[in-house]
Structure formats: C-alpha cells, structure tokens
C-alpha cells in the first residue's frame, strides 16, 4: 500500500485502467464469463429411453451439454472466493418426468461431514417458485417472489455416520431421537435424503418444503461429479414450478466445493438461464463440435477499441508532467 500511495494520481489511474484491461483479457483467455453476461438457452430434449437416476446412464452420452458459467457469490456475506467455474448441463424428459444431469470438474470428492470443519460437495438448481410475471432475484429470491431450490449433497447420499471414529465409548445410554434434537425437530439436515426440495424468499430464509419430491443421485469419477436430479412435470403444492412441453422456464445453478470449505453463500453461482422443454416431436438433438465455435473477433475488437479510447482520453485530458509550467519538479 505504501508504494502505491506514494505514486502520482496519474500513475495510479493508469495502473487501475491497466488492471481492468488485463482482467478483461484474462477473462477471455481463460474462458471465464461473468455470470451476468450470459444468455444461454438450455434444452430439455424428449427422450425415448428412461435415463433413470444413474448419473452414468447412456442417455447422457447422447445428449448435448451446455456449459453454464459460474462465478463467486459476492453479493452478501458470507461471500465466496469462487472455485468451480462451470457446470455442464444436460436435460431430457421422459414420460412427463424432467431429468437434469449436472457435471462439473472437481477432482477431490468431499462426501463426509463426519468431523468438524468438513463440508460436502453439493449442487443445486433454482427455479422461480411459480410462473411469476417477473423473475425473482437471483440471490435466493425475494419476499414476494420466491425461488424453489433442489439441492443434492454428497454427504447426505453417503448417509449419516452414527458412530464417528472418535475414540472408545463404553455405553450410550440414550440414543432415541429425543437425544438428537435436530432429528427430533424434524430437520431435513439430519435425514438421509440425498436431495432436498427447498424454498427461499430472500437471504437467510431457505426452508424445506413439505413435499420432498425431488429424486437424485450422484457419482464421482476421475474428472469430477455427475449428478442427476429428477422431478415429475407437476408437483403438489403451490410453491413449485410446473413443467410442460413447449415451456420456457428460468433456472440457475450453484455448486459447492467442500475442499474449498464451501457451504451456505460460499458457493459458485450462475445467472438465471432459460430452459426450454422441447416438444415430443424433436428427434435426436444436433451436436455442435467445440471446434466450430467462432473465433472471438467481437471481444478482440472491443478490447482494441477500449485501449484506443483510453489512450485518446489520456492523451487529451491526462495530466502534463509539469502541471504549473514553472520548469520545476512538481510537489505531489
């Protein structure tokens, strides 16, 4: 800080502009897209085969994936430092059941929360709770426009350890639910459900729904996680979206990396993207090879123009080296 504050204001401005430009170029080179800049459309294709909950089902191999970019949650504390940069989304529907397969790179599976300070890998999808006239706030919705969240957690799938490896205990005299207060209170956190069906209407309001109707399963491979979530097109209760072929619904994604101590708002999130439930008459979907992606001339042009404009502005309005024209070094 001392070095920075001792430089002249003009140098500081130049450094700041340079940093912004480098950041923009860095985003492009490393293929990081700020979530707000996305406008992806996902498609849920009609399938003639039941993919089931197996994340490694052959159906997914034939379904094109859309990469949805993720960024660190930095709207409200506790904020995230980021980590997971994208989730590959595939979706089909079969027999009025919506299936979504989510894959993301994470080579260190975190499947146990059996000791303090450990956190599980997890993934979630977020929908506007009902067909609202306006899309709810991306961050957990708002009071008058809630969001429905489906969250899969690796530790829940693993099951709760009843006897953590913590040493020798002669006897547990009391082991009824009463002595597990969270369980006695009916907290879904203490249940064995791998997927939770939740609702939120603002920060800190996440609450399980009475209707736990989301099915799901996850599997970890060499590259990362593959998780399938599924729900019938229609679900009981007024807080869950209904699906039908031809619909366009908004959906957002979040991924937690246990290794990074991700939990709660400390997560990587996407913006809302559009999910189209394709009609039954769709045949096998076209596949777009990655090499067909056009070279990003538009971004290159933007950066060039930005550099030119900044240079021009500095040339015209920049501070001359000798401001007062007295041929003496300026005192700053």
């Amino acid at each position: 800080m001392t070095a920075l504050t001792s430089t002249s204001p003009r140098t500081r401005r130049l450094i700041a502009i340079g940093l912004v430009l480098m950041l923009a170029i860095g985003f492009r080179i490393f293929d990081v897209t700020p979530a707000a800049a996305q406008s992806s459309i996902l498609t849920s294709w009609s399938s003639t085969t039941d993919p089931g909950l197996d994340p490694n089902s052959a159906v997914w191999a034939d379904t094109p994936a859309t990469s949805v970019q993720l960024t660190a949650q930095n709207v409200t504390p506790p904020m995230s430092t980021g980590g997971i940069r994208a989730v590959n989304v595939r979706s089909v529907h079969y027999n009025n059941m919506l299936y979504v397969n989510l894959q993301w790179a994470d080579t260190t599976p975190d499947m146990s929360t059996a000791s303090v300070g450990t956190f599980a890998d997890a993934v979630a999808m977020q929908f506007p709770s009902v067909a609202a006239s306006s899309v709810p706030a991306i961050c957990m919705g708002q009071a008058d426009s809630a969001v429905n969240i489906w969250q899969w957690r690796a530790d829940a799938q693993e099951g709760v350890s009843l006897m953590p490896d913590r040493g020798y205990v002669d006897l547990y005299q009391f082991t009824d639910d009463l002595y597990y207060p969270a369980r006695a209170a009916g907290n879904i956190q203490s249940s064995t459900a791998a997927v939770q069906n939740l609702i939120a209407g603002g920060f800190g309001t996440l609450t399980p729904l009475n209707e736990q109707v989301i099915a799901g399963a996850g599997s970890h491979g060499a590259l990362g996680w593959s998780v399938t979530l599924a729900r019938p097109f229609t679900a009981p209760g007024e807080n869950q979206p209904a699906f039908a072929t031809g619909d366009m619904v908004d959906v957002a994604f979040a991924v937690w990396d246990g290794t990074n101590k991700d939990r709660n708002g400390q997560k990587s999130v996407s913006a809302f993207v559009r999910l189209e439930i394709a009609g039954n008459d769709f045949a096998a979907p076209p596949t777009v090879p990655a090499s067909d992606a056009p070279f990003p001339w538009d971004t290159l042009a933007l950066i060039t123009i930005a550099v030119a404009v900044v240079g021009l502005v500095l040339a015209v309005f920049g501070r001359p080296s000798d401001w007062d024209g007295d041929d003496q070094p300026d005192q700053t």
């Binding site: 506790p78 929360t113 059996a114 000791s115 303090v116 300070g117 956190f119 530790d155 709760v160 350890s161 009843l162 953590p164 597990y180 207060p181 969270a182 369980r183 006695a184 209170a185 009916g186 907290n187 956190q189 203490s190 996440l206 609450t207 939990r263 709660n264």
Partner: peptide, 29 residues
Amino acid sequence: QERCRGYQKCVEGCPYKKSMYRPTTRTSE
C-alpha cells in the same frame, strides 16, 4: 435445531468456541 443447516459459521464466529458441530445430526449445538 429445526433451522440449523450445519454451515458451522457459528463454530467459526464464536470467539470463545462454545458452538460445536455434531456430525450425527449435521447441525451445531
């Protein structure tokens, strides 16, 4: 115990470390 989701932010934030994580319920007590 009905609302806790085991984030352990309280374990982190209590300076006296008197909030404790319980793995069998995945909540803090």
